Amino acid sequence: MSEDRLAALEARLGALEDERDIARTMASYGPLVDGGDAEGVAALWAPDGVYDIDEIFLAGRERIREMVRSPAHQGWIRQGCAHVVGPAHITVEGDEAVAVCHSLMVVHESGRYVVRRATANHWRLRRTPHGWQVVTRTNRILDGRTESPALLVAGVRGEPATA
């Protein structure tokens, strides 16, 4: 195999590994948050990372830990809930990445499961010595407002969140 072909193959393999690692990072959010693992959830974010949810703005790992440990979140866990993160569209450029997906929060109510919210998710991630970490995750409920689908389109295009 020529040096050029080997280099091209290594680059392609590296890109696939990056996408897999980012997808794993994103997919681990649901099991960790539903399991109440505040440290594990916070570790997904860079130390100065932001989680921008419709009704909450969390800046830094400590705020993310607090959200997981909060009485409200612990109540969701006791009631029965599942944060389901859908397949992601991932764009990697060097040590930075943008990913977009849908998520559902499913809760157990009166003996059945109900979708409490469907959300557009726009993620910015950065490669660190500890792997890929979330720099910003912006979530907007898919309730007809224009900013929610705009997040999805921006993510597919590898663009920053505008919400």
Rank of each mutant, 00 (worst) to 15 (best):
R78C: 07
R112V: 15
R24I: 08
D4R: 12
D143Q: 10
M67S: 08
E55C: 02
P160H: 05
A88Q: 14
A23T: 12
E96P: 01
D52R: 12
V98T: 09
L152M: 13
R112K: 12
P129D: 15
E66M: 01
P87W: 08
R112Q: 13
A43S: 13
W76N: 11
A42C: 04
R116T: 05
E3F: 11
V153K: 09
G111S: 11
E19I: 10
L13N: 11
G155M: 10
V114K: 08
A38R: 00
V114G: 04
R137H: 03
I53Q: 05
L16G: 03
P149W: 09
M67T: 08
G49R: 00
D34W: 02
V134K: 01
D95Q: 09
H108Q: 12
A163G: 13
L9R: 07
I77H: 06
A150P: 02
W45T: 00
A15Q: 14
T138L: 03
E62A: 15
G80Q: 13
R20N: 10
C101T: 09
L152V: 13
A7S: 12
R157Y: 11
T119A: 10
R117Y: 05
A163N: 02
E17Q: 13
G60T: 03
E19Y: 03
G35L: 08
L9H: 10
I90Y: 01
I53E: 03
H89W: 15
T146D: 15
R145N: 12
R127K: 14
V100T: 15
V33E: 02
A59D: 13
E109K: 15
G86V: 04
A15H: 11
A99P: 03
T138C: 12
Y29G: 01
H73S: 01
W45K: 00
H89E: 10
S2R: 09
A118S: 14
T25V: 14
C101G: 06
P160Q: 06
A82W: 10
S2Y: 05
I22G: 07
R157V: 04
G158T: 07
V153G: 05
V50Y: 00
L32W: 05
G94S: 10
I53H: 04
D37E: 08
A8P: 07
V85W: 03
R157Q: 14
T91K: 02
R117W: 04
V106I: 14
V107D: 03
A11H: 15
Q79K: 06
A59W: 03
T136I: 08
H130D: 13
T162M: 10
A15W: 07
A46R: 11
V153T: 14
R157I: 03
R140D: 05
A82E: 13
R78V: 08
A154C: 04
T136W: 01
R24D: 14
E159A: 15
W123L: 04
N139F: 02
R140W: 02
T91W: 00
I22V: 15
S70C: 05
R157D: 12
V134P: 00
H73A: 00
S148E: 11
R126Y: 06
A15N: 09
G158W: 06
W123T: 00
L152F: 09
E159T: 04
S110W: 05
G35F: 03
H122P: 01
E3M: 11
R116W: 10
E66C: 00
M26Q: 12
G36T: 05
V153A: 14
Q133I: 08
L142Y: 01
G131C: 09
E55R: 11
G75C: 04
I64Q: 02
A118N: 07
